[in-house]
């Protein structure tokens, strides 16, 4: 069995998969990867199921080696780059990490979260059905903790012949503004507040973590106060506490809470929202269920199609090859246009 060794990493470098479902009734947060698209892409590149646990990097990169064999690795998300013994690996391309080589992961640059997938995933015991680390409940991860220098992660390894792959794919259509459905407590706000919410710029504050993103913007006034009897919370709920500054609840959110929730980010846009860095300005756009559902379907189809878009790196991509796969339009340099998150 091959082990992945952590030489260095940031404080919130964690194992994350789809999340921990089925225990919210006991107050257990689902947690899970903040950007499911990037998680899926990294996994598909090394031949894993899209929701296999990977290492999630938040803001900072890290450095790794392996012992006992070679590993097939891929890094996707937020424009983070990886290199092996100082040689850069092209974006959205997997690579073979040989025993004794050093894998360096750069900082996420265009967003906050990047994912390192290893073929076969990690041979780590799940807690309550998931490897996802949840900070506040000390569940999941490696022995209930985030990763740190000196950690040793046993890897399953698929046993398959390993071959570096490239994923040439554009992100799904998103349409700019972060789409929300109003509710469940939009009736706790006067119509002027709803208008203000939908027509104003909000900025992601530095208080943004896996639990929630505090936004700053115009003060959102309540019509009937901000004390409600606590009720259920879901990913993407936008709650408005007494300060009038909204908080978007993310994967490590609580299971129930007591501030009125003006709207909910649609499922297809939550990963994109998670990649907005502190200081980024955004707007919300209200949509009906039909549009949210179409976006959810679009994302699901996009994820399902990923494995068919894999190209072995040995093909040494040419413009002709890409055009033959009908993945890009117009005349572009295939290598220069290799897209990233």
């Amino acid at each position: 069995m091959t082990d992945l060794l952590v030489k260095s990493c940031g404080p919130m470098t964690t194992l994350q998969d789809r999340g921990r479902l089925g225990f919210q009734g006991f107050g257990v947060s689902p947690s899970g990867a903040m950007d499911r698209r990037a998680l899926a892409m990294a996994n598909v590149l090394v031949g894993n199921a899209p929701e296999t646990a990977a290492i999630e990097f938040m803001n900072l990169g890290g450095s790794f080696t392996c012992e006992g064999g070679d590993l097939h690795v891929a890094l996707v998300g937020a424009g983070a780059a990886m290199s092996i013994d100082g040689t850069p690996v092209p974006p959205q391309t997997s690579a073979i990490l040989k025993e004794g080589q050093v894998l360096d992961i750069g900082h996420p640059r265009t967003g906050t979260f990047a994912y390192l997938a290893i073929d076969g995933g990690f041979a780590v015991e799940p807690q309550l059905g998931s490897l996802s680390f949840h900070l506040r409940s000390r569940l999941g991860g490696l022995n209930g903790a985030a990763l740190k220098a000196g950690d040793r992660l046993p890897c399953r390894g698929s046993g398959d012949e390993r071959e570096p792959m490239q994923l040439v794919v554009q992100p799904p259509e998103d349409g700019g503004a972060i789409r929300v459905m109003l509710g469940p407590q939009d009736d706790y706000f006067p119509s002027e507040t709803i208008c203000l919410f939908l027509e104003s710029d909000f900025t992601v504050s530095p208080q943004a973590d896996r639990m929630g993103f505090q936004l700053t913007g115009p003060r959102l006034e309540h019509a009937k106060g901000f004390n409600i009897v606590s009720d259920g919370i879901v990913d993407g709920h936008i709650q408005v506490p007494g300060s009038g500054q909204p908080i978007v609840l993310m994967r490590d959110r609580q299971t129930a809470g007591g501030y009125p929730k003006i709207a909910t980010v649609i499922s297809a846009d939550l990963g994109r929202f998670a990649q907005l860095r502190p200081g980024t300005t955004l707007r919300f756009r209200a949509v009906e269920r039909a549009e949210a559902l179409a976006a959810a379907r679009g994302l699901k189809d996009w994820l399902a199609a990923l494995p068919s878009q894999l190209t072995p790196v040995r093909f040494n991509l040419t413009t002709e090859h890409l055009l033959s796969r009908n993945l890009i339009g117009g005349t572009v340099d295939a290598l220069a246009s290799a897209p990233h998150e």
Binding site: M181, Q185, G236, T264, A295, A296
Partner: peptide, 17 residues
Amino acid sequence: ILPCGDSAVTIEFGDRI
């Protein structure tokens, strides 16, 4: 019946304890 985005719905029986 209170929609919570596209992936959840809250069925509320009251607003008190």
